[in-house]
Write a protein that binds this DNA or RNA. Structure first.
Lengths: 239, 239
DNA sequence: TTTGCTGACTGGTTATAACCAGTGACAATC
DNA sequence: GATTGTCACTGGTTATAACCAGTCAGCAAA
């Protein structure tokens, strides 16, 4: 997708995101909508649409009468299958990923169970450090079945793993996830640049591919997030 | 809040919601936008705004060129406004509650902001210890507006607070909630019978009553759960 | 000095209008 | 009968305009 066919509100949103990521800090004010419409050469409603999207994503906050501000920094996960990169970009951060290791190893019991492996069977282990604007946010450990993904270790694993899975014919259709709080073990703490034992959010996710219910297990992951840089938010309704 | 001052897009949304709830079934088509603008006597952009909100809430689905349809009852999440007691019973535990204190006090800034209080205004503070089979699971601190709930402190607060609110004419219709991991402060750790600094799940919840969007704020709560005795689970779908 | 008002700014809502792109029924043509 | 094209519908995007309601700095009056 090049910018030639890009919708105006998408362009404006992208450019605002870049501004937030590169120049602005939490609490900084954006120009007013009427100034932005001149600056971007679009109508006010287009500016509002772009800003609304960023407000929804948590990157910006609007205050009536005062203006629109860069929000105070927590990335919000909104409980859908967005990739880390998408989440970070939506919040105005530049994501990056460092592959700690990608190898074949014996998985923990829960991963083996999910993937339908026998005791002692090996699986792919992909461990990655995820960063936002160069600062570590999470350590992700994914376990994947070698039989279904023969060439996985030669893929570029610094982007979206779900995209790699989709390109291999195994798009993740849904997942089940739990969240706990945990004390950061030493190795993880070092990677995340926090004190050992500091509280972290621990996500365990079981992902499925295929249209069946529940589908075919395709990934088991354990993600450890710095709690000061990541938060889950949700909207609750009457059951 | 009567309908006299109701925004047009809110009225249209409410009326569409009622139509969906009472008459239509999953898969049924709504009238087209241009017909709806005539029927509701508003501009098309107002109709679109109302529908957009319902699309976002999952009630409706829009298909370009075809129309807008009642969605196929996609279950967004297992997260809903169930009470602590219901959760525990569902998991096979016998719940109980001890009121730590219920008083009038100056709330923290976030609670004051949510409840629309001025700096220094007082609110009800209800602190409770929640137990399962006699073992502490969470410390809940709720802040509520005294103006709306004059007799609250004489209620039995060992059961469901939401039930008390409903009986007072303020049923909680929806809430927004965030989850973080945190280190247990000393006082909370003592109550939960864990080490100070142990990781806990920290929920902040902003609850609303009434049918408006977003409704009238009615409670701000901070709940601290022992991570080894409580876990959030959720089902993720494609966005 | 304090208080209150005003005006210029802010975001929020709604209207009218025009155009674009997708859908599918129906008619015309091969 | 099959294929293609047209047209009336659908939602999607964007523009211009007007008005409402909140914020706050500056100024005037008490």
């Amino acid at each position: 997708m090049d910018t030639a066919g890009e919708l105006k509100h998408v362009r404006v949103r992208r450019q605002l995101q870049e501004l937030v990521a590169s120049t602005l800090r939490p609490g900084d004010a954006l120009l007013g909508e009427r100034q932005l419409e001149e600056q971007f050469g679009v109508s006010r409603i287009t500016v509002r649409r772009a800003i609304s999207d960023l407000v929804q994503d948590g990157a910006l906050v609007r205050i009536k009468g005062k203006g629109t501000f860069v929000s105070h920094g927590l990335v919000r996960s909104t409980l859908h299958l967005a990739s880390f990169n998408e989440d970070m970009r939506a919040a105005g951060y530049e994501p990056s990923t460092r592959v700690i290791n990608a190898a074949v190893a014996v998985p923990p019991a829960a991963a083996a169970e999910h993937l339908g492996l026998a005791e002692g069977d090996e699986a792919y282990q992909v461990r990655r450090l995820r960063l936002a604007n160069g600062a570590p946010v999470s350590v992700d450990e994914s376990w994947l079945p070698p039989g279904a993904l023969p060439g996985l270790l030669s893929e570029d694993l610094t982007g979206s793993l779900y995209r790699v899975l989709a390109a291999s014919g195994h798009p993740v259709q849904h997942a089940e996830q739990t969240v706990e709080a945990s004390a950061a073990p030493e190795e993880t703490a070092v990677l995340l640049e926090i004190e050992p034992g500091a509280p972290v959010l621990l996500f365990r996710r079981r992902s499925f591919t295929g249209q069946d219910d529940p589908g075919t297990p395709i990934e088991y992951s354990i993600s450890t997030y710095r709690s000061d840089r990541y938060q889950v938010s949700m909207r609750l309704a009457l059951a």
